[in-house]
Simulated assay, not measured.
Amino acid sequence: MSIFSVVPVTVSDYERRARRCLPRFLYDYAAGGANNEETLSANCADFSKIRLRQRVMYDVSRGSTDTTLLGQPASMPLALAPVGMAGMYARRGEVQAAKASETVGIPFTGSTMGVCSINEINAATNTAAWFQLYMLRDRDFVQEMLQNAWDSGTRTLIFTVDLAVPGLRLRDFRNGMIGGGWMGKASQMLQLATSPGWAYDVGIRGKPHFLGNLSGKVKDAKDLNSYKSFVESQFDPSVTWEDIRWLRDQWKGQLLIKGVLEADDARAARDCGAEGVVVSNHGGRQLDAVASSISKLPAVVDAVGSETEVFIDGGIRSGLDVVRAVALGARGVLMGRPWIYALAVNGEAGVRNLLEIFQREIAIALALTGVNSVQELNRELIDSE
């Protein structure tokens, strides 16, 4: 039976279809991790080891998945994580995903490396997106992007701190996305030729393809490789917590530090004035062989959870995973790859449908663990046997 005769419902359904409809280098860019991808695998595998306690004969007639994330009302404890080049997976992809998020009632996060700028995203929706940023060598440009995001309506900044240097993502070498000379270019051309639907909808109708937040800073605006070279030249391995204190002084809104795995780093983020931290190993895309995000969550919650909001990303593949994370102390989760797969398959509708399934899974899990709200989830609902 063809995968296209089955209505996609789960993340796995969407991923299988995305693999078929995308050029290989784009699928690998989203799906791949660093080196041997041990951490990438552990992120999902460690979620599956967590068991919930099913409890019966509780009045769960008032069940609700509603919550707040950094003061913003949300229909469930979930936000869409920033994903670079999302606009290459569907026509004006960031805008489509932001519209889906708004319809469902959760935050969307625009990436520094997004095809659609934060201005374009916020102009297309009534609810301003969150914005993700790296610390670049050019601090004047950092200030410029911060001011631009603020002026467009954004009030929540996610600042990524685990990218002092880019990880070694071997799939990008194998498929010709990085290096490879003429062989790499030939490989990419062949991949494009075998993805005619993508070539028309995104390659032709989805222009312009430059990274919108950086368009005024890169000389060759039509060449994605120019953007990549610019960003990599701007990664600053000298950044310390003093730079985050400087950032805190620049940004008037909510600040979420993403890329924390250790309790000491979470405390440092708190001491810099961050309202929240994201327990994250960058989806297994940076340092391979580090622990999964979910295995590190409890210690970070114990260290700072009473003073800051703790989020997690990496390995989220269902509403049950959201419940597991919240029961372990997370305020909410950020989800990346799944929404990209749904976007690639069916655009805004695909993202919306996937999120609605997640919400239904969360609601059912709440009822069958005997609670009426996500605020009632706690570690007592984790089966320790």
Rank of each mutant, 00 (worst) to 15 (best):
L170D: 12
L211K: 07
S111F: 10
A274F: 02
N346C: 10
L297E: 10
G206D: 04
G336N: 09
L163R: 00
W150P: 00
A31S: 15
E120D: 15
E94Y: 06
T160L: 08
R139S: 08
V104L: 14
V300C: 10
I158F: 10
Q143W: 11
I106S: 07
K222W: 05
R205W: 04
D236C: 03
H282L: 08
L170A: 11
A74D: 05
E102P: 02
V301F: 11
R379A: 06
W198V: 00
S293F: 10
G63Q: 09
Y227I: 00
R16H: 11
L214K: 14
G93L: 02
P73A: 10
V239W: 09
A263G: 05
S318T: 14
L224A: 05
A221D: 04
S117K: 09
L328Y: 04
T65C: 02
R352K: 14
L297A: 08
M135Q: 09
S384R: 09
L190T: 04
L366R: 02
T156K: 03
G71K: 02
M189T: 11
G93R: 05
T125L: 09
G203P: 01
V218E: 13
G315Y: 13
D223C: 07
Y27F: 13
V202K: 00
E102F: 14
T156W: 05
I178M: 09
N35Y: 10
P196E: 11
R331A: 14
A269K: 04
S5Y: 14
T103P: 00
